[in-house]
Design a protein around this nucleic acid. Structure first.
Length: 258
DNA sequence: ATGGCCTGCTGTGCAGGA
């Protein structure tokens, strides 16, 4: 089974890219973030025609997450959870589903804007709630994947210019400590389980010719529980769709299980 | 050179992203 995550920065704009990439990548499960559309505008029928069932938690303009699952792959309909239970939040950032016995969580972590800002404080509260919930989920589901746009570059090697970024939002020690807390729950960064090229990122600013200069960050991740990590045979970033016309600023990440 | 781009909105420039 291939599990992927992709921040599409508006599903309305990127719908055809997603459909093309599903065909190209042959993934079975695709976690989406930043849908930027309300549920009534989710193109469920178009994904159905492409051979995928979909579950989603959307809202107008901002945020929004989804999970697409290839036909023939078993999904427990009763297992769908939207948002972090007990964390009251109008922002749609989390959806979970149990797929072939694997707990899949598609998450769009808050950006945080700037260290010390109100949005950063919200990011910290959200991260606390997420870790509490994921810890509980892992007890219920030994096979769990937390996939999404984390808005955290875990280490300096995940940053094109660590000096320029030092202490900034997305790389600050406080954010990185939250990433470590997730790891300490027993999760493994699938990407780092394997040898990888130097300076391989998942996000590049639209400005400053950043993609061409590879001025990026690795902020999109798939973390796996121990049982799932032991079954993981590969993890890749696919930069191809970042080169397409009118691309998302994020590239998809793929983990192969089995 | 501290900006630059992209998206959605009911805007007539702004907020938000990262």
């Amino acid at each position: 089974m291939k599990i992927a995550t992709w921040n599409v920065n508006s599903l309305k704009v990127r719908q055809q890219h997603v459909i093309d990439w599903l065909e190209l990548s042959r993934v079975d499960v695709l976690c989406l973030q930043e849908l930027k559309l309300p549920d009534e505008k989710f193109p469920r029928a178009d994904f159905e025609a492409a051979g995928f069932k979909s579950w989603f938690a959307g809202q107008k303009t901002y945020n929004g997450v989804g999970i697409l699952v290839r036909d023939g792959v078993n999904v427990d309909e009763a297992s769908i959870v939207r948002n972090i239970p007990g964390f009251d939040d109008p922002q749609q950032r989390v959806i979970a589903a149990t797929v072939e016995g694997v707990r899949i969580v598609s998450a769009y972590f808050p950006n945080g804007q700037a260290v010390g800002s109100e949005k950063f404080a919200y990011k910290m509260r959200w991260l606390d709630a997420l870790a509490d919930w994921i810890g509980a989920e892992m007890k219920l589901h030994p096979k769990l994947a937390l996939a999404g746009d984390y808005n955290i570059a875990p280490e300096d090697r995940d940053v094109h210019d660590p000096k320029a970024w030092e202490g900034q939002n997305l790389v600050s020690p406080e954010e990185r400590a939250h990433f470590v807390r997730l790891v300490e729950l027993g999760l493994t960064d699938a990407f780092r389980k394997f040898e990888q090229p130097e300076k391989l990122f998942t996000w590049w600013d639209y400005r400053m010719l950043a993609f061409r200069r590879n001025a990026g960050l690795r902020i999109d991740h798939i973390l796996l529980s121990a049982e799932l990590a032991s079954l993981c045979s590969a993890c890749e970033v696919d930069k191809v769709p970042r080169k397409w016309d009118q691309p998302s600023d994020h590239a998809p990440v793929i983990a192969t299980i089995g």
